[in-house]
Design a protein around this nucleic acid. Sequence first.
DNA 1: TCGCCAATTGACAGCGCTGTCATTTCTGGC
DNA 2: GCCAGAAATGACAGCGCTGTCAATTGGCGA
Lengths: 337, 337
Amino acid sequence: MRVRLEDVARATGVSPKTVSRVLNEEPSVKDSTRKKVLAAMEQMNYRPSPAARGLAGSRSFLIAMLYDNNENPASTYLAEIQDGVLDACDAHRYSMMVSPLRLRGHDPIRRIDALVADHHIDGVIMTPPLTDHAPLLRRLQEHGVPYACISPLHRDEAIGVCMDEQQAAKAVVQHLVELGHKRIGHIVGIANHGASRWRLQGYKDALAAAGLAFDPKLVVQGEFTFGSGVMAARGLFELAKRPTAIFAANDDMAAGVMWAANERGLKVPRDLSVCGFDDTPLATQLWPPLTTVRQPSREMGKLATLQLMDKLRGRGTGLLLQVPYTLQLRESTAKPA
Amino acid sequence: MRVRLEDVARATGVSPKTVSRVLNEEPSVKDSTRKKVLAAMEQMNYRPSPAARGLAGSRSFLIAMLYDNNENPASTYLAEIQDGVLDACDAHRYSMMVSPLRLRGHDPIRRIDALVADHHIDGVIMTPPLTDHAPLLRRLQEHGVPYACISPLHRDEAIGVCMDEQQAAKAVVQHLVELGHKRIGHIVGIANHGASRWRLQGYKDALAAAGLAFDPKLVVQGEFTFGSGVMAARGLFELAKRPTAIFAANDDMAAGVMWAANERGLKVPRDLSVCGFDDTPLATQLWPPLTTVRQPSREMGKLATLQLMDKLRGRGTGLLLQVPYTLQLRESTAKPA
DNA sequence: TCGCCAATTGACAGCGCTGTCATTTCTGGC
DNA sequence: GCCAGAAATGACAGCGCTGTCAATTGGCGA
């Protein structure tokens, strides 16, 4: 029937416990023994039973990816991260559970408790904005469940991955400045999201660096959705002195800006330059294609997971890795008329 | 420490086995006993250990959602389905694993084998185009693992969920006909995908019903991607007699058509009507908003999962459920000039 | 060569549940 | 009121692995 650890032990002439030691990469096994066992495992195509390991031992080889199902950053973003997490899990024989959390209404703490109680989760991958939900993090700590964050707001304590979003935002806006724009609008994302803050700050930095005055009227609150981008853009278009360029804090809102521009008969980029952030598939599906910042989400998911696994093995070197951004200059930005 | 089945048994004054029976909804338990046990479970906040259940019993309470990572229909589609599957899992205390399969290159059969061997998967949710990957289905059957399909090509044997895509496609095209269009182009999806066939057939049906001749030159092969939509549209624009409307087999390609129209200076819908299929978020993020068919993907994911669970409990009534489509008439279609 | 300590290995119980089969408790029919 | 057979319950082993702690082995200085 199924090849069990005991079978491998018998084949190798050692005790089951020793095979178990090899399986778990414990150091106290003589090298020659280890090799023999590994060879037998390979040869017999042995596959440990996660259920048995979970029941007997303290680890479950399961990690959960938590995300917010209400306020989520575009679903393509999460899908990419998920792919990255899966890549890393595959490589380390871990499994992943996806666990959508509805912050509004439902009680996320109970969800965490259930995850821990039911599945003995070994660790958690947190995506924004959950990365900064203090009660959640505290609860995880109480349970002793390690977690890695993707783009957390508070960067000091967390382990995980981030990108220098502030610098990236500064770079896109500088691109607009270099094209000759003087009145540059900005649409902010959901308040308190790290992404919103960093991108706004980068916008300010670029203005400052260029010696342009910061005008609060040019900054409008959005909430990362297409619709909010439309609304925000309409507001900006009503200004006595319309901006000649708009930097939206993500691609969805940038798409909204382009929609509103169309609605008002403004031609992009002739009458208005637009840029976004994230480089979702949407960016190249708009007309004209959107200038934006590429964020390597899949890679980030993978790296965060690897960080988590390092921590699970106690090998944790790391705090917060930083991945590089890439400017994607496309046709939605041009010199002002 | 942890509340165990045994604790519940002691509290209720019955044997552990009886509690187990209640837990597994076995019929041979007296009603009064069942109520007592359930009350105690509730009161003690008992949570069965999936690991122990999996190890001792034959079920793992785990289902896998399989999808093709290369040729996937837009990621938002899969994300929606996944959400639906999770909804259903939650409701029935099942867990879900996501398992991307790279059909090209990697060997999907091995992946299935691994899933079964490692995790004792109870069942599988199949998404297109995997629903029609014969070797895969055969392997699942050999393993005795039940599966439910979402929009399978071969509808006879499969259990799962589908939509009358042919009828839906016919309806959108009829909408174009009613607007007065005579030359209607169609961009087909990846060959052999059910979605491609049904939508093409619906297109033909509508033409026939309207007494319009079918012109093969108006039908161009695409592959469900934005880029292929652009290419296909360019081809159609080169025709001596350009179509006045184009029905793309999905929204991404329709977006491509609109892109290509922009590129060529054609104004939608004045010079060209465009419609798509799926009603992804993209549809309302384009300018003008896209006329399309809404497919309730999330609902379909949920229903397919419920079907699967029915089957797992042997209560399987069902073959293929059919969910209704909805026409989303928006501004990308209008009377021909 | 002997003893001692560290390095390696093994014996054994038990993780929390379910399958199997035995046992007890009800039914209803006579 | 008694018995056959169905309904309901229980006893017990064991799923495949790991934690604990004991036993063995090997290396080295005295």
